[in-house]
């Protein structure tokens, strides 16, 4: 049906500086880049061929449904990641972009601690999802320029 194994994920830059975002998100993103590409991460943006800016990582929760008693029955968890990437000259590689994700979580006021851990699991899941999408976006830079 035309599917092929994904080719190399090498990016068109050998060095990359990643900055911004919250520390936990940054750790995971850097880990994904280090493990998944041949690009080396550098601490000094001046020595990097490209700079990836994580402009914001927002986590929100909204009430999705109420029980008949007016209590929260389901929550919607949202993760929004804003980012952009420039080359060494400050020219945009990736224009300011946003990745929005959401997950549903059933809620129960008598299980607050357990639900908090499920919430953390879903945020980690969304974080991995967002990082995977950023990796796709980085690979698209290669396809356009290369």
């Amino acid at each position: 049906c035309g599917f092929r194994l994904r080719g190399t994920q090498d990016l068109p830059f050998k060095t990359l500086h990643v900055t911004g975002g919250d520390p936990v998100f940054l750790i995971e993103l850097k880990r994904a880049i280090t493990a998944g590409t041949a690009t080396r991460l550098v601490d000094d943006p001046k020595t990097a061929e490209a700079v990836l800016y994580i402009d914001g990582v927002a986590r929100e929760r909204h009430i999705l449904s109420l029980s008949g008693a007016g209590r929260v029955r389901e929550l919607e968890l949202r993760l929004r990641v804003q980012f952009h990437m420039n080359d060494a000259q400050g020219q945009p590689f990736i224009a300011p972009s946003q990745i929005s994700l959401k997950r549903d979580l059933t809620y129960d006021d008598t299980q607050v601690l357990a639900k908090e851990q499920e919430e953390a699991l879903l945020y980690r899941d969304m974080q991995n999802d967002a990082i995977q999408q950023i990796m796709f976006r980085l690979a698209a830079v290669r396809r356009r320029t290369g």
Binding site: R103, L105, T106, Q111, A114, Q117, E118, L121, L122, D125
Partner: peptide, 10 residues
């Protein structure tokens, strides 16, 4: 703090 987890993709 244990309970049955939601069954979902995560």
């Amino acid at each position: 703090d244990s309970t049955d987890a939601d069954f979902n993709f995560a």
